[in-house]
Design a protein around this nucleic acid. Structure first.
Lengths: 110, 110
DNA sequence: TTATTATATTGCAATATTACGATTAATAAA
DNA sequence: TTTATTAATCGTAATATTGCAATATAATAA
């Protein structure tokens, strides 16, 4: 089918899965890391940096914008992208609380 | 194309993306949360718990096993699944270090 | 106005994912 | 041995994702 049955799961489960899915492509990880590395807005050079075609980068940026982890502001003919710090922190907390559910669990398999 | 160009990215980027991709489905999040919640091995009732067909659950379990976050041991006619604690901790660290690259970044967009 | 530049959108081909019915394999129980 | 029981695998349909060429859009420069 190819269609995820989201109605079977909680909002929290769908939410974390949706964000993880967007993080589930190396180009999008590379874009985020580049934005962090330069520690400022970037206007334009992502295509050269990542090495995929312009429409492909544009599509990845769109998905990152969809979950709000980056934001883009029009600056003349170009668009400046940067990390949305507030959303980044939210996602950090979301993943940390998911992954730390398991801290006091010492069970190994039967 | 549908084919990710992994050769354009670093091993670290591909690694985190691969794990995030597996976490990018609510059924797999639900499976992991159920395994954590019961805090022991589970032999069989995942199909009832999650509410998807048995072959579908089996396929999701396979993907979780692929990245090593869970392990399965044959126990008679059934299979007991549990969290692989060591791998879980590795993934927790991996995500934390990725997400914390951004801590001292106070930039907002232009 | 007419380029030029930068990015988004459209359309499409190739491949991947999701889901499930049918079947298979392996063990346990009768 | 025959009959459950449990889970994996196979096959397939529906849908999603990835990537890019071509085109469109929007702002600036000449």
């Amino acid at each position: 089918m190819g269609l995820t049955k989201t109605e079977k799961f909680t909002d929290a489960q769908n939410n974390i899965a949706q964000i993880a899915k967007v993080l589930g492509h190396p180009a999008r990880i590379a874009i985020l890391q580049h934005l962090i590395k330069i520690n400022s807005c970037i206007c334009g050079d992502l295509v050269d940096e990542i090495g995929l075609a312009q429409p492909t980068i544009s599509q990845h940026l769109k998905e990152l914008k969809n979950i709000g982890i980056i934001q883009g502001n029009i600056e003349g003919t170009s668009v400046c992208y940067c990390i949305n710090q507030e959303k980044w922190e939210y996602i950090t907390t979301l993943f940390a609380s998911f992954l730390n559910q398991n801290t006091n669990n010492t069970t190994s398999c039967c």
